[in-house]
Design a protein around this nucleic acid. Structure first.
Lengths: 103, 103
DNA sequence: AAATTATATTGCCGTATGGTAATATTAAAA
DNA sequence: TTTTAATATTACCATACGGCAATATAATTT
């Protein structure tokens, strides 16, 4: 079965936006951290080593683009990955990289 | 089975680079065009509507990053997608978008 | 060898965006 | 209600990079 996906221009723009979100090391670090489970901002800051301002800034990008979701509890905001595809896609790309290296 | 991938920092940088390649509409247009099969530069220019200089420029990026490969024949250079994962990943992300839209 | 065709390269400009420091906001605690 | 803690926002700077126009390169034809 020829499984060619031909996406239209609108879908292409959307795709590009989604890939862009995943194309920044700082955001990937945050996501990697959240793959282990829900975390508050301070925990993310500690785990990633990024500055608090950057973490908040990038979390906002992730939130707006629905890559993560947020729940407030007192002073803290707990973030978690909301798009389960993200981890799958990271895994796919990582694996293909390893295969390349084997060549 | 908890299929958590925890990639290290080096893998994370590599992932970010790969996502970045896919995060530009012009490159996605070129790739979409190549998903249908090998094409020479002029064909890509005609199909995508991009300027020839841009197509060459972006093909170079794709080539360097091993997203496409190139074969010369006389005056023409024929490009094709070399990483079969790319199409799969585009499909995955497209599908998850559609699911989001349904909500 | 000139002219032509296909593709690549270069230089420039403008925009987008990440990092940072400082400050603001918000909620809890004292 | 002042203080403290957690997070968000703002403003600024620097860099990366895409689009474009012009030019260069390389292979072919005449």
């Amino acid at each position: 079965m020829k499984d060619k996906i031909i996406f239209n221009d609108e879908e292409l723009q959307s795709l590009a936006r989604r890939f862009k979100i995943l194309s920044e090391p700082s955001r990937l670090k945050i996501l990697r951290c959240l793959f282990k489970g829900e975390k508050c901002v301070t925990d993310i800051v500690d785990t990633t080593g990024l500055l608090q301002a950057n973490v908040s800034k990038q979390l906002r990008v992730l939130l707006i683009n629905k890559a993560v979701e947020c729940r407030q509890e007192g002073l803290q905001r707990f973030y978690s990955v909301s798009d389960e595809k993200i981890q799958k896609i990271c895994k796919l790309l990582c694996d293909s990289r390893k295969k390349d290296d084997d060549k």
